[in-house]
Amino acid sequence: MATAPEIPAPPRRRPRPVSSGRLSAASGLGLGVGMLWLSLIVLLPIASIVVVALQSGFGPFREAVTDSEALDTIKLSVGAAVLVTVINAVLGTLVAWVLVRDSFPGKRIVEVIIDIPFALPTIVAGLVLISLYGPQSPFGIDLVGTRRGIFVALLFVTLPFVVRSVQPVLIDMERDVEEAAASLGASGFTIFRRIVLPTIAPAMLAGSALAFARALGEFGSVILISANLIGKTEVSSAYMLKLIEQNDTTGAAAVATLLLVVAVIVLVLLDSLQRLAARRD
């Protein structure tokens, strides 16, 4: 007991406890490998888009994005994405509400059907839509080569986003808040507007952001039904593909850069709205 323990000097490489959250040699190596991999497959390719777009100066870039065909496709893609996002934000929330609060025979089948656009390959979605709204439509509705066809395709592929982000929030929502509001005399609509909507707003916005990004860049489901008519139904992704196949790398990169910028602006906007909405409760 009396022998004073000799105080050891810490070893050159100090051990790290599991809980410390600091990197050890092994996890540091893992981080390095992971970052290298992500750089090779994500960061570098995305950087290459911007670099190629601007490598011959700002002039060619401006020329490429102000080309009338380019402008038409961008207006169409952004406009369609906005419209489709708004529609599915509303109807998606409604669907989520019915799935959480209502029960009826066949509800589980509806649940499975909602996931189909997620799992279905986009080109198959395109074929699916053209067989219903194409020249051989069983109802005689032919949307091939129309903008309405594009809207329907985009509605199809973006349906699950808002439904699947709002649903868990509705499930977790405390029912007694609504009951308290009702006991204070609020009507059903008032309760929805004042109590439910603020609660699910962040999830709605998050789902909308994903839906918008998806609609903006969508290619496979749109390409068959749009028929790719220049100036009418040509979407940006199809236009970029055409440019790269014609070896117009600067043009393709310029349009891609512009789309990236639009996507980033909208995502940041929706993200800050989401934070704002989340802070309110």
Binding site: P5, E6, I7, R14, P15, P17, V18, S19
Partner: peptide
């Protein structure tokens, strides 16, 4: 227990 390590001491 060794789940944390001291800055100094033994």
């Amino acid at each position: 227990a060794g789940l944390e390590f001291p800055d100094t001491g033994s």
